[in-house]
Design a protein around this nucleic acid. Sequence first.
DNA 1: CGAGATGTTGAGACATGTCAAAGCCAGTGG
DNA 2: CCACTGGCTTTGACATGTCTCAACATCTCG
Lengths: 263, 263
Amino acid sequence: MNRQDANIAMMATEVQSGQSFQQRSTQQDPSRRRFTGGCQQCRRRNDCLPAGMDDAGMARLQRTAGHVRPLVDGEALVHQFEPMTSIYAVRSGCLKSMRRFPDGHEQVCGFHMPGQLIGLDALYVGTYQCDVVALDTATVCVFSPQALERLSREEPALQHQLLRMASRELASFQGRDLHRPARNRMAAFLLQVSEHMSEQGWSACRFRLVMSRRDIANYLGLAPETVSRTLRSMEAGRLIRVDRREVALLHPGKLEALAARHA
Amino acid sequence: MNRQDANIAMMATEVQSGQSFQQRSTQQDPSRRRFTGGCQQCRRRNDCLPAGMDDAGMARLQRTAGHVRPLVDGEALVHQFEPMTSIYAVRSGCLKSMRRFPDGHEQVCGFHMPGQLIGLDALYVGTYQCDVVALDTATVCVFSPQALERLSREEPALQHQLLRMASRELASFQGRDLHRPARNRMAAFLLQVSEHMSEQGWSACRFRLVMSRRDIANYLGLAPETVSRTLRSMEAGRLIRVDRREVALLHPGKLEALAARHA
DNA sequence: CGAGATGTTGAGACATGTCAAAGCCAGTGG
DNA sequence: CCACTGGCTTTGACATGTCTCAACATCTCG
């Protein structure tokens, strides 16, 4: 359902901008173009970089620093260890970031939903810390970190918002409680997704997971089999309904209790 | 050893500032005073807020935004849920931050060493997300977030450094690999502490843990007993030597292999 | 010296990981 | 249109790392 919506929204963007498909799939030469709708047309403008800025400021933000890049399912946005050149804001779709370790093991460190920044973690070291790949068709806004810093000297709202967004991400990392049983982590995860869905104006109780069980498991520090079993057990307990990747939260209250409580 | 050093340093600060002990223990009326040594005398000036600023800028940072607050062992710096009024930089000593959950359970989310900021995570929501408590005698520099933002509009270096420090913290959160066996987490933790020690000019291979086993366990998502056993087992394997809270890393290389590798 | 916190050690229980097999769906090519 | 392939998901049986509980040791501080 949501997937379809996303596709439709995507197509609309395509048409508006006259962006051709083959151009979109050009991996190493990201299509450089101005904003199509602009921040003012973006659903997430109040939580993303332009938050708190007036129209002139927003226009300036777009003009000086930003353009849009579309991604197809599975396409990589940035690669771990490569020098950081851009900071991205998710505009539509969903991406995952993951670290590769020397022994080949991979760790999913996060899923990025519209209104979130990608690449803040790379600012300090100067190289990207994760691979970031699109989980479905997605669009991101591309910003030059230098231009952002320059602009935020003149636009206090932008400076403020940059820090706020970093802060939000920090807080969400902190909130992840280790040593909690699988059921609780799963509940917390579902609610997290649910929240993002409703923030985007979609149903908070019926949605489609864009990420595979394997990704979810890896993200939560569990085995895929455990995720599967946990979901089934929640379904048996009438907490949720699951069909493939479609999920319905039947009892959000109970889920929240699970997510908050520690046993 | 380190503990004693810290105490000595502390006493020196005391004398310099003429700060009395009873004033120090006044919890709700934090001692407000100017910097004693100033950023230029601070060991961490190159990794902390003043990084990249010239003398004039540093002086300005201190004058407009900062003063020092000493803490005794166990003293609380900030409380979860209370409105955010300040951002702190650790100058000496070590603090832990922890979240309390509705059911009474506590989660240690981090240890703060000199040169790190405290309170960035609170910027977004506006209330502190954690209790922060000193683990030994410590001093922190107190900054007003508004003053910081104002000043960083005129001092690009400060603006840059604020973001860099947030970025560093983000990256370190991301680096924490869930679902790794206890031995590996423990190795990673010891190396993390070791690194902080050497950054402060102390030995990277012999140090005293300021935090209790319980705190370590909680931080790593393990039971205290598991931490105890893991340390003993590492000692048996000639990787480290442990006596109470004194730790010696006998084979840092092998520890790093443990921390990096996934099995 | 005694009391309370902190750390250690052992035995048993349990949740989760591992391994293996089978089901299901989507895309491909005949 | 159908069989085939390959990835993802589910399910079961079993192994095991970690937790829990309880007892004891040790240190700290009054």
